[in-house]
Design a protein around this nucleic acid. Structure first.
Lengths: 217, 217
DNA sequence: CCCGCCTTTACCGAACCCGAACACACACCG
DNA sequence: CGGTGTGTGTTCGGGTTCGGTAAAGGCGGG
């Protein structure tokens, strides 16, 4: 998001050349709604925008639990802005005048870092033949839709949020059910079995004996 | 790591005041070995260092599978340096002259980000041809995946947490099996043998006769 | 009242751990 | 140089734990 067309074009040009899809908005409100609608992998925000300042957009996204990586553009090479921006949850910033190549490098670095983080929690995820769309709460296995109950869906979503990562039963109870684990229960196992049955041969969930469960990376 | 004492002192002063423990090194080689030895939560590297340049230190750490967050200090406000730094796996950089407050904010931001990803004890470890990922509970030897049981994995993870350090059988029993373990000390031997067999020729575990076991540093 | 979902329980098969026993390597010493 | 003893490598079966599965009870909503 950027209000000066010349700079915006440069940004788009370079990011596009590097294989990123780019969506541009010229003012704050439009940018905020676009970010919520399009669920991009990262946002590049000018701090000084007509309408809503970029910092405010970032704050509202974070407030809504949206941890999409944010990179600020700022004209003022002023440390106060820098610190404020980073402290309120931005991931990086670039001061104008910047080189587009530098911006691209920053976007890359931020994406590399956030690869394992909670960001993009609402973007569809794909693991092998299984797809899961958190926003629509839909799951498909091998292209065919799969009907999961609420708990089953949350469980699978939790596991697929970090493919490869092994979750203990306590972690799953805390993360999916929402309360601390009371030991000696096998509820998690039963739900895992249920999900596996519904996914059919595309059972992405792997058991780690003595530890917990994970989906294949 | 920093070769100008005045700047180094400032960095230390501000980071210490903010509750960070700080270790200083003045040249590249010392810094690299210190980073490997002390396993800090983050590294602050001057790009221009006597001996090894900071970029080289970062490159070598990454090469060894060490993803400790790295922040570069650079005098040259030159985008090539910036991009090179970020592309080779640095997490951020600060250009001189910088304010110590800004540096602290950067360190904070980097730590906050890395807390969402693989955190502290969950960071992958590499020793020679063997890699171990605590979060995924996966092990590879020479690139090939290795299937370990829970106890075998915990044992190897414990040893690889401090390469070079020799653990007695009692220490391993306490650390891996837990303090309530009533297993005989020979149990450790059996599991070590099992891990060695599964790792194949890449057996990183060395026996210290009369003492215990360690992985090569 | 019916129906779907969550939870618990019980049972079974399989994987795993332990410990003992035996074979082997190394160091010390005669 | 070979004997001896201590410490370590390796093998193997019994016992136990752990996870898959099916079935039934509880709870709430339609």
């Amino acid at each position: 998001m950027e209000d000066e067309p010349a700079i915006a074009d440069l940004v788009r040009l370079y990011l596009t050349r590097d294989g990123f899809g780019v969506h541009l908005e010229r003012d704050g409100e439009a940018g905020l709604s676009a970010a919520r609608r399009l669920r991009p992998v990262a946002c590049v925000l000018d701090i000084a925008l007509p309408g809503l300042p970029g910092t405010e957009i970032c704050r509202r996204l974070r407030e809504a639990g949206d941890w999409t990586p944010v990179i600020f553009l700022t004209a003022r090479d002023d440390e106060v802005d820098r610190i404020v921006g980073l402290e309120l949850g931005a991931d990086d910033y670039v001061t104008k005048p910047f080189s587009p190549r530098e911006l691209v490098a920053r976007v890359r670095a931020v994406l590399r870092r956030s690869a394992g983080g909670p960001e993009g929690a609402d973007r569809p995820r794909v693991v092998g033949p299984v797809t899961l769309d958190p926003a629509r709460r839909t799951v498909t296995a091998g292209g065919a839709p799969v009907q999961l109950t609420s708990t089953e869906f949350d469980l699978l979503a939790h596991l697929m949020a970090r493919p490869g990562r092994v979750f203990t039963r306590e972690e799953l109870l805390a993360g999916v059910w929402g309360y601390a684990a009371h030991a000696g229960t096998r509820t998690v196992d039963v739900h895992v079995a249920q999900v596996r049955a519904k996914l059919g041969p595309a059972s992405v969930i792997r058991t780690h004996r003595g530890v917990g469960y994970a989906v294949d990376a």
